[in-house]
Design a protein around this nucleic acid. Structure first.
Length: 858
RNA sequence: GCCGCCGUGGCGGAAUUGGUAGACGCGCCGGACUUAAAAUCCGUUGACCGCAAGGUCGUCCCGGUUCGAUUCCGGGCGGCGGCACCA
């Protein structure tokens, strides 16, 4: 253990030197519009990583998986003449820093800075070609300023239903709308609703965040509070439609579509003793089968319609439900519960009086919080009706599932349904919707699962809302843009108070804006900063705007070309970001309607034990340790060689050793050790091409040089594989090529240099070092990607397979231009083939030139 | 329950407009070099039968299409991820 492990090549010496040089010389700086050295005619390529939350634990080997992939693409595109934008930054607001601050008393800014310094060091030790001049940090006041500015754009906008676009609320003012009416249309609005309040965290959480924090041992309860919301639901249809043309994995698209949850159906109005109640259904064709109605316990009308006899029962039931969270209600789905209100509703289609129940299987948050129950054709209604002995009337026939629980998409024929009888489900739906619309009893309706985005948090370490409250009128207002950024006040104590207005409520001087106004004390969620960081990278130090028109037009033309990052953000971050981007697009601040043209999610890297890496299991691998033992290039190579990028795969230290051996082999193609153990240039190296046939211009002869052939195959394959993000097969091809170099008597330097260019995006340190030792003063990464020459790829002798009845019986070396007839004759002449055809009649011979001959005989 | 993805050697994985299954790497075994070890290099390595030539089986299981199926179709089984009383 104490023995220093012998390094197979001196990566520990040259890797830090190259990293220092790249940083000092700003090798990977990306010139943008406005820079003196910017060349507008050069095409851009924007390759983006999801920026990390700089935790105290530092990087684990999962981080560099995606980062290495983008680095290879970026370096490759750079060598192919693109002006590559490949930036990195920090998603640095967040609860862990705040909680650590509460524990230690240290300001979150200090721990955040320290963590960033550590993350940056770790990333730089891997040799990524980031333009560090473009680094962004969501907690930097210069960044916060623009996050708040974008929020103010949302605040000052509404969704124009006609254009399906955001527009300034000033349009509404011009239309004479009242302030209240306008507030009800703003994209950022105040809403009082039951929210997920965590007493021990002292904050409200988004629905999507509950599970995460519960898993960490925190409690979450339902509590009605006034909160800022963002009206993302207005964009539901566009978020689905505009997803379609994007180059994203189909599975991720489907995840988003699912989340948005579009359902087509109808709204139907029922009368309950003078009160109109609207339900949503995807099966309006089953209206004749509605034998009872159910309201969510929280439905506003419950108290009004409940009969005196049922009052006590209903109130008890509502109390019981209120004590349960959404989750608990969901967990108890084995057993339906509910009570009758005593009221009756009139089925608009046949005038039948049907009982109105309340039950917690109906959710207030979806649709209208009320349903028509059709027990013959809905599993849940069927279960409920059976339990409480409510009538079941079949109205669709022909379902293969029998009378109960027809699938909602099921096809059948309407029966017991008056004027719908005999119609197929599809036609019945159309006809009933038409009837409902004619008779003012309902209308076609598209319903989404997506809810508006709960945007406020009760935290210290987040962007304060740039908003004020009028002390007298209670009306809210924006602070002037000139006062941005609005930073949190310096506070000694940011512990949660239990006051749902958050810890900022304690900063009494700060809150008191003027005699007229007091400040909003909520802060924004961590998503805010990550919603638009990809835009800031394009123009990170702009003081006049969040991004300049010029930078936006150039770098965001067609959107981010490739976005790589974890699937865990496939729904929320990517949805929120798309939403903000669309609003900015509608308002004319950006020129595209989608931010990320191509998206790719790398698979998780598991621990050596096959389990997810976690501190508690002790199976976390730190890149620092891997770099110490094998070097940065070996880590990069291994991460890419493990398997397909998208796949979940376990870490294996032995595998790192394997690629380390490969890199050492490359090193030894160019270097050998002398008596003193120093690395000197290999004696196999030659200036000319004296290992090749005399005239390499002759295709046939050139192809006889195995080295030249494999090299050109490698150029071709690696280039193609990089475009397809198939790095594992690219690396295996480079291993094949290296083995050919190792086997060669002589190694022509020009061929070796060509190979080094191909390997450079993967292993930049090693290749630059060898190139330098070979006497070059240029950087490979600033050179151009080699072109392959088809003439070296042509084979003149190939192997074809001879099958008899589909089984391989012989392999023949034949000339590549053999005709079908020649192949057939050669195949039939083979001894072993004859052994299998003797005594049989040849029925058919299939010849696939260049591949095989299959003789069918019996 | 619904949606999506995936099942290939001891292991990570390659090969799909249907055409030699197991590239490349790890591990194992054998050999060379060495006083020895490490490092490096060479060779073997899906299973079974055979001295060999060769043969039989083999890509989760069952069936189908085809001259030919890891690849396409139908039906199962198993695993992973997401959603989940969404009307």
């Amino acid at each position: 253990m104490s023995d220093e492990r012998r390094k197979p090549f001196p990566f520990d010496e040259f890797e830090p030197q190259w990293q220092k040089r790249w940083l000092d010389e700003k090798t990977y700086r990306t010139p943008g519009p406005g820079d003196a050295d910017f060349d507008a005619s050069k095409p851009k390529y924007y390759v983006l990583d999801m920026f990390p939350y700089p935790s105290g634990a530092g990087l684990h080997v999962g981080h560099p998986e995606g980062y290495t992939a983008t680095d290879i693409i970026g370096r490759f595109k750079r060598m192919n003449g693109f002006n590559v934008l490949h930036p990195m930054g920090w998603d640095a607001f967040g609860l862990p820093a705040e909680q650590y601050a509460i524990k230690t008393g240290q300001h979150p800014r200090i721990t955040t800075e320290a963590n960033i310094t550590n993350f940056r060091r770790q990333l730089q030790a891997l040799g990524f070609a980031y333009d560090w001049d473009r680094e962004v940090n969501t907690t930097d006041p210069k960044y916060v300023r623009w996050t708040q500015w974008i929020f103010l754009q949302l605040y000052a906008s509404y969704f124009n239903e006609e254009t399906q676009k955001a527009a300034p609320v000033s349009e509404l003012e011009a239309q004479g709308k009242t302030p209240e009416e306008i507030d009800n249309l703003r994209l950022a609005f105040i809403h009082e609703a039951p929210v997920n309040w965590s007493p021990d965290l002292g904050t409200v959480l988004a629905n999507e965040e509950i599970e995460e924090w519960k898993a960490k041992g925190h409690t979450v309860e339902r509590r009605p509070l006034r909160q800022w919301m963002l009206r993302i639901t207005k964009y539901a249809q566009r978020l689905i439609d505009e997803l379609e043309p994007l180059n994203w994995p189909e599975s991720i698209k489907s995840l988003q579509r699912n989340w948005i949850g579009r359902s087509e159906g109808a709204e139907v109005h029922f009368d309950i003793q003078g009160h109109e109640v609207t339900v949503f259904t995807t099966r309006p064709d089953t209206l004749f089968g509605a034998t009872y109605m159910v309201l969510a316990p929280e439905h506003a009308l419950v108290s009004e319609i409940t009969t005196p006899e049922q009052k006590e029962t209903v109130e008890t039931y509502i109390k019981k439900c209120a004590s349960k969270s959404d989750m608990e209600r969901g967990d108890l789905n084995k057993d339906k519960s509910g009570v009758p209100t005593g009221a009756f509703a009139t089925n608009p289609v046949n005038g039948e009086q049907i009982p109105v129940w309340i039950a917690d299987y109906v959710m207030m948050g979806y649709g209208t919080g009320a349903i028509m129950a059709v027990p013959a054709h809905d599993e849940r209604d069927y279960e409920f009706a059976t339990k409480f002995e409510l009538p079941i009337v079949q109205v669709v026939q022909g379902s293969d599932r029998g009378t109960q629980s027809l699938p909602s998409s099921g096809i059948g024929t309407a029966i017991n349904s008056g004027f719908l009888d005999g119609l197929k489900t599809k036609e019945a739906k159309k006809k009933i919707i038409h009837w409902l619309e004619e008779n003012n009893k309902g209308a076609k309706k598209i319903q989404f699962k997506l809810r508006d985005w709960l945007f406020s948090r009760q935290r210290y370490w987040g962007e304060p809302f740039p908003l004020l409250w009028d002390k007298k009128t209670g009306q809210h207002a924006a602070i002037p843009e000139s006062e941005l950024p609005l930073l949190q006040p310096e506070m000694e104590d940011f512990k949660p108070t239990g006051d749902p207005r958050g810890p900022l409520i304690k900063a009494t001087d700060w809150i008191n804006y003027s005699d007229q106004y007091t400040r909003e004390t909520n802060t924004m969620p961590q998503w805010a900063g990550s919603c638009w960081y990809y835009l800031r990278y394009c123009d990170p130090s702009n003081r006049e705007a969040f991004i300049s028109k010029g930078a936006e037009n150039y770098f965001m033309d067609g959107g981010v070309d490739l976005y790589v990052g974890g699937k865990e953000h496939a729904v929320l971050h990517l949805l929120y970001s798309r939403f903000w981007h669309k609003v900015l697009n509608d308002l004319g601040h950006v020129s595209t309607n989608e931010p990320f043209q191509r998206y790719f999610a790398p698979g998780l890297i598991m621990g050596e034990d096959g389990q997810k890496m976690s501190k508690s299991l002790g199976n976390v691998v730190s890149p620092d340790d891997v770099v110490d033992l094998y070097g940065a290039d070996a880590l990069r190579l291994y991460e890419m060689f493990m398997g397909p990028l998208e796949q979940v795969k376990p870490w294996q230290m032995k595998g790192v050793e394997g690629v380390s051996r490969f890199l050492a082999k490359v090193w030894r193609v160019a270097n050998e050790q002398n008596q003193e153990g120093q690395w000197i240039l290999s004696s196999k190296l030659t200036q000319g091409s004296d290992c090749l046939p005399p005239s390499t211009n002759q295709p046939g002869e050139a192809a006889n040089s195995p080295l030249l052939k494999v090299l050109h195959e490698t150029i071709k394959k690696v280039g193609e594989d990089i475009e397809k993000l198939r790095f594992n097969t690219a690396i295996s091809q480079m291993m094949v090529c290296t083995n050919a170099f190792t086997a060669a008597e002589k190694v022509p330097i020009d061929l070796l240099t060509t190979f080094l260019k191909v390997l450079n995006p993967f292993a930049p340190h090693l290749t630059e070092e060898i190139n330098k030792r070979l006497g070059s003063t240029d950087l490979l990464s600033e050179g151009t990607w080699p072109e392959f020459d088809e003439q070296y790829l042509v084979e003149d002798e190939i192997e074809i397979v001879v099958q008899v009845n589909g089984k391989v019986r012989a392999k023949l070396k034949v000339s590549a231009d053999s005709t079908k007839e020649q192949l057939e004759d050669l195949a039939k002449a083979d001894e072993n083939v004859q052994g299998h055809t003797d005594g049989k009649t040849i029925r058919k011979v299939i010849v696939v030139p260049g591949r095989l001959v299959n003789i069918v005989a019996n």
